[in-house]
Amino acid sequence: MIEFRLDSTSGVSPYLQLVHQVRQALRLGMLEEGDQLPTVKEVVARLAINPNTVLKAYRELEHEGLASARPGVGTFITRTLSDASLAAHGPLRREMGRWLVKARQAGLDDESIEALFRDTFRSASAEDVA
């Protein structure tokens, strides 16, 4: 069973941290279809967080189709993330490698590359939202 943790310095809201941790565990194969997530009370007792936060995280997972609640029993994983996305990793990684070579040839150092990536990523996300 997954054990949640919270990083209070990350700036990421607690409910998103829980969602991310479930997704990451799914990607890495630590959680599989049919696994039960800790009950709300277990998470609350362990992390000293608001139960609504846990409920909200689980609802988010249900909304994404990753988990489903069985009333009176608990919340269970309904599908896994590892297979679908892993296949796409290779081509993307190769493409990004080529991009990095270009950036270095243009004279960017590591920090500049990182700043550029972040800025571009943020703008793209903002446009998606818009």
Binding site: V40, K41, V44, A45, A48, I49, P51
Partner: peptide, 10 residues
Amino acid sequence: LQTLMIAVAD
């Protein structure tokens, strides 16, 4: 806070 949050959950 754990005691408190468990009470809220219960």
